[in-house]
Amino acid sequence: MVTLYIDDIQVSVEKGSTIFDAAQKVGVYIPTLCHHPELHTFGGCRVCMVEANGKLVTACRAPVTDGMVVRIDAEGARKVQRMVVELLLTKHNEDCQTCVKDSNCKLQEVANYVGITPERMAMLRRSVTEVEIDESNPFFNIDRTRCILCGICIRTCEEINGVTALDFGFRGEHTAVVTMGNKKLAESTCESCGECMERCPTGALARKNYERPNREVKSVCGYCGVGCGIHLGVRGDRVVSVRGDKDNPVNKGQLCVKGRFGYNFVNHPDRLTTPLIKRDGELVEASWDEALDLVASRFKEIIDESGPNALGGISSARCTTEDNYVFTRLIRSLGTNNLDHCARL
């Protein structure tokens, strides 16, 4: 263990921890834009600058040493912090109202912390580069006028998924988050899992047609056999979002494109909402009683005529375990073991 002092608060942390880790431990806020606990540290935003033993360091990278004296609000650090945030704002889209991340944006948070004044901003030259919003992906957009080049999306795509559809491209003022050939996202190797969007600190990667859910329900994804833990976001009588469950041991918060975005079938107008009975070759609406009476009577007739083995039941790998259990109970109770599902498909 290493003991250090952060703004006179004594804190002991494990060797190899960073100043940022130590500050978090004692609940001391250090502003940052490019740091993400699940990803390798980058150190590019320079906003977490603090003074450690009289020298300016980035808290996210600097390892703690015994007896280290850290001053978060040292003047030198503050000057860099403020300048960086001001500079980033000169290149950032000013229209926050239409931004999905408004009031949930790290850049706003940090700007608020360092204290941005209109007088200062007026001295600086604004230069938002006109870049077309990449709307090619059906689920989320890339708006590079809101990108602060923190690289979180790039690291997410490489470290979390290994898809690595994104990288920094070009250099200097032209530096940008790019795909191969600077193509639109939908034409790249991106697998649309949306992990980058989940982690983007600003509105640069933002969900399309976002609707904030009223409540969330913990459940399990209904697609493949991996069984990812999810939070279903509900608004009224619709599912409007799916979020990975970070505490689930299977997916640890991760989701794929189907899991995260493929929920629309639940709300779809083509859903079957009443029983249907075939009359004169046409399926027509019927009441539950009509339908079930018909099924029961036809089953009975056929069993009576041809024995229970003239009946077969196909259960479903898509339904719950309980549904399957009840289904097998019914079919077997009717006297047949002609029972299967699509395990082999």
């Binding site: 079957l272 036809r298 719950t320």
Partner: peptide
């Protein structure tokens, strides 16, 4: 089919799914 019965989706029911690693999880 002769009779079609309308079922609920996974978002509309309780139960468990068992994943490929035999993990029984709540829906």
């Amino acid at each position: 089919a002769d009779v079609v019965l309308p079922a609920a989706t996974f978002a509309e029911k309780d139960g468990v799914f068992v994943n490929t690693e035999r993990r029984v999880q709540r829906v």
